[in-house]
Design a protein around this nucleic acid. Sequence first.
DNA 1: TCTATTGTGCTAGCTCACTAGAACAATCTG
DNA 2: CAGATTGTTCTAGTGAGCTAGCACAATAGA
Lengths: 126, 126
Amino acid sequence: MVEFHVDRGSGFPAYLQLGQQVREALRLGWLQPGDRLPTVRDVVATSGVNANTVLKAYRELELAGLVEARQGSGTFVKATLGSAAPEDLDPLRAKLATWVAEARSAGLEDEDIHALMREVLSGGAQ
Amino acid sequence: MVEFHVDRGSGFPAYLQLGQQVREALRLGWLQPGDRLPTVRDVVATSGVNANTVLKAYRELELAGLVEARQGSGTFVKATLGSAAPEDLDPLRAKLATWVAEARSAGLEDEDIHALMREVLSGGAQ
DNA sequence: TCTATTGTGCTAGCTCACTAGAACAATCTG
DNA sequence: CAGATTGTTCTAGTGAGCTAGCACAATAGA
């Protein structure tokens, strides 16, 4: 079961946060096709977001073909997003964890690490 | 000189995008104390964002003590953000680039990589 | 001093994210 | 069948992000 964390006041639209968290869970294999997303009312209760906002997030995911809403039953995962096989993911995660440890011991904070990653992904200095 | 890229229609507030890009440039050493940020009117011309929006972004940076606005002269970098020495950054960047190449050859897309990084940084499976 | 350039302030208005509250429709469960 | 649960729709309203346009203030440079 996925747990949502909506950070209100970050300037980040709540419905985008919800959608992004679902997509991330799909990428990491936390959610598989057939799994059920938290109920709209569940999300309302746990995150304090309005039902319409949750619905908007779910509908965008449905429009993207990622989930399927069945009235009376729930919203279910329909497709996955990860482009790599889960068994390939583990060694990569391990190596990355080693690198992260090294970076942190060099004094880098999480934001520095993210910035560095964005730089490398975008093709270096540019 | 930093170049701003404002992606309108992403749901992401423009003034936050601007501020984030300055912070990122500070982290990566692209901007050093004493450097001048693009003129408010420059940003307006290149990004199409309104002057008030740019001003809002710059004012937040000033409130954070990162930049200093001098009327008639420009907005200048006052402090840096990177928590690591630039000479420590290069080997880390090189190793990370190696890892990224490996991840991409395994089929991972940029979004997968970011998701994996967030997962590792937040402490694994959790 | 004069002029261009810069940051700053102001008002008015639009759009959209979000809330509030209520009702309805389909499905599941007993 | 009956009740609970779930997704869905609707209306009304609030607040913030953003735009538009203009005027002003301080600095730099000729």
